[in-house]
Design a protein around this nucleic acid. Structure first.
Lengths: 201, 201
DNA sequence: ACCTGAACACCGTTCAAGT
DNA sequence: ACCTGAACACCGTTCAAGT
């Protein structure tokens, strides 16, 4: 409507296209195989073409991180409790292969912000913490979720590669449920700390 | 004494030599520059020589991780409380550039074990948790320490590279002290959760 | 505006061959 | 037992040139 046919640009690839291609490549090849050449190949373009759209690989990966975190879905559980926000964050990371490692690296380079962080901060304030306490609580939970999921996904990769890590080979279906329980238990340990801290104020 | 001169092997480089060279190279060049070629150069040897001593780079790096964690110093604070064990772990990571990222990757690949883990586990049991609770507490604290230190060291690298990350440029000497306080505060949040959980048993 | 083609300066790893 | 020299199959990034 706002762009009549006279102005229909034949842009062969948008940033969004490339990010989408990279995301699905990540999911079925894994982060170690997500090279600029692999991304270029998957959309039928030369590697150098990617550098017209993005200044470097890390920036491209940061956009992929944002996409899988759903940085657009601003609201979602905007006023849930801490636990449900953390569980949602955990699930988004679990939805794509190696997502925790990818997000961890984008975050470390300061190229993304996590939607979950302010949500947890505000929930902590509602729970009774002051601003500084809420910031520390948010950081602690974010570290926990990323660290936990990182290990979780690394084990998934090792399993599917047939690698035996210690005695993990004897893991049954019940153990997978136990892993999810461990996540919630670790989370509850931290939230219990938050509530206990509130009582001292 | 146990090896008379007739048997004095002229081993030109031991594994320990190489690990030591890699460790000091890590400390003044950073993890991204710690290539097999750089390590080989620093001890005056061809890259391929390293592959006689180690099967691959990750294994070499795992031995470096163990060295900087002081996996030999088994005792140290064998029966301290959770907080002092975590603080010691944090200090060992802070002692070498990029140590948190290095250890995180060795750990994810299942190539090392952390001395701090069983120490925290036992301290948690002494505090009143059962075995499963103590395991979860140990993992949660380990995730927190590594995640916190990872970000801490990434910021150190960005600072020394003159990179301005957000408004971090206005950080004063007082803020450095505040950063150390944040570590202890995050830690106390988790230990408060542990003590609160114990009361429910 | 968007992409090609070719190059540069690197990687980790392997392997025959030397001593 | 320990290392050299050379190669293989990759990387991320740059840049002139095309359309």
């Amino acid at each position: 409507m706002k762009d009549p046919d006279s102005k229909t640009k034949i842009r062969r690839h948008s940033q969004a296209d490339i990010v989408g291609a990279a995301l699905s490549l990540l999911d079925d090849q894994g982060l170690p195989n997500l090279s600029m050449r692999a991304i270029a190949d998957s959309i039928g373009v030369q590697v150098s073409a990617l550098y017209w759209h993005f200044p470097n690989k890390q920036t491209l990966l940061a956009r992929v991180s944002e996409r899988l975190l759903g940085n657009s879905t601003i609201d979602s559980d905007a006023d849930g409790d801490i636990e449900s926000i953390a569980v949602d964050f955990h699930e988004r990371l679990l939805a794509y292969r190696d997502a925790a490692e990818l997000v961890s690296s984008s975050l470390a380079l300061g190229l993304i912000t996590l939607p979950a962080r302010p949500l947890i901060h505000d929930a902590a304030v509602r729970a009774g913490l002051d601003d500084r306490g809420a910031t520390i609580a948010a950081d602690t939970i974010v570290h926990f979720v990323i660290g936990f999921t990182f290990h979780e996904q690394q084990r998934m990769n090792a399993d599917s590669a047939g690698v035996v890590i210690h005695e993990a080979a004897t893991m049954t279906v019940a153990d997978i449920g136990a892993e999810a329980d461990d996540f919630r238990s670790g989370l509850r340990l931290i939230t219990a700390g938050i509530h206990a801290t509130v009582k001292f104020l």
